[in-house]
Structure formats: structure tokens, C-alpha cells
């Protein structure tokens, strides 16, 4: 048995790949639920109804999907140029703490229209800066950015923990390490009343469309793709590799920082060290499930968010640990990798 490269990638297979991958992941998760002695079909049903069964659950799923779209785009944009930004989690936190600090200390008393746009920029810049360090190390010292971005996640979280337990600590939080609350005028408008859903969702979807446009219709889109496909020949073809990667890193880090920004301004209102349930890492899965397509990211983020929200509800009624959501999401990444492989290769005996 051996693998043979397909001459054409069948379009139907490319579209079906994520669905097959998710189905396979859910099937394996079903086995794990069954092994735990719980009723599998009831567990699936609970996941589905907890994620989409009521107005509240739908808005919760969408609220959860909003930062995931942004971290997913952050990974998708970078991976397309073969910039392995695994630091989304750290960039998320740096963006979050930057806006919390700016809103509480600089913009106190400013109007919403004045401070919210500035806070978006501050959050994005914070994320950018954190990714430019590993990129600089790669361009200057040939250091693999996978490891440095991963290590910086820990540094970033410790830095946030230091600030929320120190200079930015909220004196009214009964001693808990949490940042001062952002200014009321800095909170994002709600999309629906009686829910946590905020305009961050609209913004994230709009950004997905904007990135889709940039990648498919601009010179920069072609360059970043060329940088990913083959850096050496890209340079020969006149692509300014360093500059392209810097812009890719600024977009990618900026998006992850923006994810932290909308989570603080839209949902929580302050920063704690458990602000993110792994949005940065889940963003990698979202990007891969979407096959790095910006519009696909929106759907993949919705699936991932539904898994997490659904598993929360399922856990309460069926008694299966919520970690089943993380397991399923990780499995769907692995099965997606395999599914994509089979869109490119076929088995020959």
C-alpha cells in the first residue's frame, strides 16, 4: 500500500473534509463517553440542546464564538505564510490587560465614541508587539518561532498575573487578584438585550470577510501565500520576505490582542488570570478546521464554541467531565489533518 499524489483535489472532498473530520471526532468522543458508562445519544443530545436549544444558549454560544473567530483568524493568517504563531493565548492576555489598564487609568471619564476605538488599537498593538519579538528572533537569529511563541505564553500570563496582583489590582475585589474594572463608557454595546452577546461578534465576522478579501484580491495576499508555500522561490520572485512576514505578524498578533480586547470590553469588564479558557490554543484548531480559510474560520469557531458551551450543559446533567469538549476539539484537529491529507493523496495498492 502506498500513497499517490492526486492530480486534482476533488472539490466535493475538500468541502466534505471538515465535516468528515468533525464526525470522526464526535464518534471517538462517543466511545469515550460510552466507556465512562454514560448514555451516548443522550450526551450528544444534551450537547446540542445546551449549545442551541434556547435563546440563552444560542447567545452564549455566539458570545463564546466571538473571540474564537479572532484567535482563529490570527492563527489562519499566520499559518498561511508559514509563520507558526502558537502564541495566541499570550497575545490575547496582553491585549486584554493593555485595554484594562488604559481604560482604568488613561481614559477615565471619556465618552464611548472616543475611547472604544482607541482601546481597540491599544489591544491590537499589545498583541502585535508580543508576536514581533519571536519574529525578530527568527529573522535575526533563525530561532524557530513555535517554541518562542509557546514560551512567551507563560511569560505573558505571569506578567498579567503580576499586574492584577499588583499595580492594577482592584481594591474592591475582596483580595482576589483581578484588575480594576474598565470604565462603564468603555463597555461594548450589546447586540441583544438580556444576553451577553456584544458587537464584538459583528466586528469579528466583518474582519473575517476583510481578510478574505485581502488574501484573495491584493498583492499582499499573494505575497503572504508565496512566503508560506516556498520562501526561497518567493524571494527569487521578488517577494520582500521579511517585510511580508512583519505585516503578517502584525495582523496575526493584532487579531489575537483584539480577541482579548473584546472579551474584556464586551463580556467581563475586568481581567482575571482565567479570562481565557484557552482561546489562543483553540484558535489553532479553529484555523486548521477551516483549512486556513477566513470565512471557514467563522463556521469552525461556531462549532468549537458550541462544543464548549454544549459540554458544560451536558456535564451538569449526564455527569461526564467537561474536558470531553477539549478532547473532541483536539480530536477534530487530528482528524482534520488526516482528512486534508486524503484530499491531496489517494491510496494505491
Amino acid at each position: 500500500m502506498r500513497f499517490e499524489r492526486r492530480e486534482h483535489r476533488p472539490a466535493a472532498l475538500v468541502v466534505a473534509a471538515p465535516m468528515i473530520a468533525v464526525a470522526a471526532a464526535l464518534a471517538v468522543a462517543g466511545v469515550l463517553i460510552a466507556l465512562a458508562g454514560a448514555p451516548v445519544l443522550e450526551a450528544y443530545w444534551k450537547i446540542l440542546t445546551s449549545a442551541f436549544g434556547s435563546r440563552l444558549s444560542v447567545t452564549e454560544t455566539l458570545t463564546r464564538a466571538s473571540p474564537l473567530i479572532l484567535t482563529g483568524l490570527a492563527a489562519a493568517v499566520a499559518f498561511r505564510a508559514r509563520l507558526w504563531n502558537i502564541g495566541g493565548e499570550g497575545q490575547f492576555y496582553l491585549g486584554a490587560i493593555a485595554v484594562a489598564a488604559a481604560s482604568a487609568r488613561l481614559f477615565d471619564g471619556w465618552s464611548s465614541a472616543a475611547q472604544i476605538p482607541l482601546l481597540f488599537i491599544i489591544g491590537a498593538v499589545a498583541g502585535m508587539l508580543l508576536l514581533l519579538v519571536p519574529l525578530w528572533l527568527r529573522l535575526r537569529f533563525s530561532v524557530d518561532e513555535v517554541v518562542t511563541t509557546l514560551l512567551l505564553n507563560f511569560v505573558s500570563l505571569l506578567f498579567v498575573s503580576m499586574l492584577i496582583d499588583g499595580v492594577l489590582k482592584d481594591p474592591l475585589a475582596f483580595g482576589w487578584p483581578q484588575s480594576e474594572a474598565v470604565d462603564a463608557a468603555a463597555r461594548l454595546p450589546k447586540l441583544l438585550t438580556r444576553s451577553r452577546l456584544h458587537i464584538g461578534l459583528v466586528m469579528a465576522v466583518a474582519i473575517a470577510f476583510a481578510i478574505h478579501f485581502v488574501q484573495s484580491r491584493t498583492v499582499f495576499g499573494v505575497r503572504s501565500r508565496a512566503a508560506g508555500l516556498n520562501p526561497t522561490s518567493a524571494v527569487f520572485a521578488g517577494v520582500p520576505l521579511g517585510r511580508t512576514l512583519v505585516i503578517v505578524a502584525m495582523i496575526s498578533g493584532g487579531l489575537a490582542g483584539l480577541a482579548g480586547t473584546i472579551e474584556v470590553l464586551g463580556v467581563k469588564g475586568y481581567v482575571t488570570s482565567d479570562l481565557s479558557p484557552g482561546y489562543g490554543y483553540s484558535g489553532i484548531v479553529v484555523a486548521m478546521l477551516a483549512n486556513l480559510n477566513p470565512l471557514g474560520v467563522v463556521l469552525a469557531a461556531l462549532f468549537t464554541a458550541a462544543m464548549f458551551v454544549g459540554a458544560d450543559g451536558m456535564s451538569r446533567s449526564v455527569g461526564i467531565p467537561t474536558y470531553i469538549a477539549d478532547v473532541t476539539v483536539a480530536l477534530s484537529l487530528l482528524s482534520m489533518l488526516i482528512a486534508v491529507f486524503f484530499t491531496q493523496y489517494r491510496i494505491r495498492r
Binding site: 499559518f79 507558526w84 513555535v146 489553532i284 474536558y323 477539549d326 478532547v327 484537529l333 487530528l334 489533518l337
Partner: peptide
């Protein structure tokens, strides 16, 4: 066997192994 990206496969294995351990 499949020759997939070692970066992404490895991260996938990390996400799977750690979440499976917690589960």
C-alpha cells in the same frame, strides 16, 4: 506514514494527550 506537518501534528497530539489526561 502520512508525512503531515510535524508542527501541527505535534500540537494536535499535545492538545489531545493533555485534554485526554484531564478527562
Amino acid at each position: 506514514t502520512l508525512g503531515l506537518s510535524q508542527h501541527v501534528s505535534g500540537l494536535g497530539v499535545t492538545l489531545f494527550a493533555s485534554s485526554f489526561a484531564y478527562y
